[in-house]
């Protein structure tokens, strides 16, 4: 009987440790902390990568819906009831031929800075976002 308790408590410890580990790994997977796009990978960065707290942004009043940022445009109009969740920004913003990286960079700059200027909150200067090491 004593042996049984030992084994079961050991199993419980392992199970709990596994649960904690699982929770931490999913946390790391879903909390977004930088602006990333596969279009930037493998290329030399001109400025340091941008820190970005996705969860914090979802709580801001100015961010009404997911499609405030994850927008979907059709025929030059932003669609009210559509979003681009799960898509990479480069899926659309690299669609134009030529100079594609600059298009993507411009899109990020416009999206972030326009809102920050309107709300008078958040970074707008080059070095405020592109800070630290490359």
């Amino acid at each position: 009987m004593k042996q049984y308790h030992k084994v079961s408590s050991l199993l419980a410890v392992f199970a709990f440790a596994g649960l904690v580990f699982f929770a931490m790994s999913t946390e790391a997977q879903f909390s977004i902390t930088t602006v990333e796009d596969s279009a930037f990978s493998g290329k030399e960065r001109m400025r340091p990568i941008v820190s970005f707290d996705h969860d914090a942004h979802m709580a801001y009043d100015a961010v009404e819906d997911c499609n405030t940022c994850h927008h979907m445009w059709e025929d030059g109009k932003k669609m009210d009831n559509a979003d681009s969740i799960g898509m990479e920004c480069s899926a659309c913003h690299l669609a134009e031929p030529g100079n594609s990286e600059m298009n993507l960079i411009s899109a990020y700059h416009r999206l972030c800075r326009t809102c920050h200027l309107n709300e008078k909150a958040g970074p707008v200067l080059c070095g405020e976002c592109h800070a630290g090491e490359k």
Partner: peptide, 18 residues
């Protein structure tokens, strides 16, 4: 300067060598 060309790209959609 790359940072300047980015501003030209954003404002006028033109860019060149950096």
């Amino acid at each position: 300067l790359f940072a300047h060309i980015i501003l030209f790209k954003e404002s006028f959609d033109i860019s060149w060598w950096t």
